[in-house]
């Protein structure tokens, strides 16, 4: 059986909120290392990969592999009933028909309990190759969100060019063009404001802004976002969570002339 207790419902609320517009039905794969999710969007352009390690829960118990097939719209409805600060416990039997969610208020004696019917989801898992990326950029997640939103007002695509000069986000549209360039930057007082660019070779790739803006819904999960790029491979956008847990998005590039 599965029993996983989260100190704050907020974490799961934010994760689900960040991915629910990208993927609708997905398996939460539970085993003794934690709860994982991998799903593609309907058009097979983007992939979301979530890992909530067992250490992110206290306690965490999962005796055998259990796949919880959940409709994220349904999960969102139920999670809306949880206060951000509630303790959230997920429970399921070994061959479950439902997943049970319990929300406990730390301040009052209120306990709410919900069951969500599970779905049988035949989901393909993709193998994600280990990649030595040509460029890795860590930057404030709010800054990345702002750049993507600002450029989407002009164009549906953005080119991300990384060189030793810095990283340049540029777009061209009907009304004109725009770009934002960031250089490495260290803020001793506010490390969340740091921009770190780790470059082994220059890289330039083009991506759909619609997807990037969607990924940025995860911005409230982490002060920093990491972008990993290599020529002609999908972009990795990673929001690191506590205890080595993470929410990652992969986005296939636009290629050709």
């Amino acid at each position: 059986m599965l029993e996983a207790r989260l100190e704050q419902a907020n974490l799961l609320k934010k994760v689900v909120d960040a991915i629910k517009d990208l993927v609708q039905d997905c398996n939460f794969d539970c085993n003794d290392s934690g709860i994982a999710l991998q799903a593609m969007d309907n058009s097979h352009v983007a992939l979301v990969s979530m890992m909530l390690k067992s250490e992110s829960f206290s306690p965490f118990r999962c005796d055998r592999n259990i796949a919880l097939g959940i409709n994220l719209t349904s999960l969102t409805k139920v999670l809306r009933a949880a206060q951000n600060e509630d303790i959230l416990t997920l429970k399921a039997e070994d061959a479950p028909d439902v997943v049970n969610l319990v929300f406990e208020s730390a301040e009052s004696d209120r306990i709410s309990e919900y069951d969500i019917k599970l779905m049988d989801i035949d989901q393909e898992h993709l193998g994600i190759p280990e990649t030595e990326y040509a460029a890795t950029i860590s930057m404030p997640s709010a800054e990345f969100q702002r750049i993507c939103r600002d450029l989407m007002a002009l164009s549906e695509s953005v080119s991300i060019e990384c060189s030793k000069e810095g990283v340049k986000f540029a777009c061209q549209g009907d009304i004109g063009s725009g770009s934002v360039t960031l250089r490495s930057h260290t803020n001793v007082d506010k490390p969340e404001m740091n921009v770190e660019i780790d470059l082994t070779e220059p890289v330039s790739l083009t991506f759909s802004l619609k997807y990037l803006v969607g990924f940025c819904k995860a911005s409230s999960l982490s002060g920093q976002v990491k972008l990993c790029l290599s020529n002609e491979v999908p972009l990795l956008v990673e929001y690191a969570l506590a205890n080595n847990s993470y929410l990652r998005f992969y986005l296939a590039p636009k290629i050709g002339d």
């Binding site: 352009v45 993709l126 999908p234 296939a252």
Partner: peptide, 14 residues
């Protein structure tokens, strides 16, 4: 114009 690639062109099904 550039065309949008599929993620399946990069990551193989297990």
């Amino acid at each position: 114009a550039k065309s949008q690639k599929s993620i399946l062109g990069f990551f193989q099904k297990k």
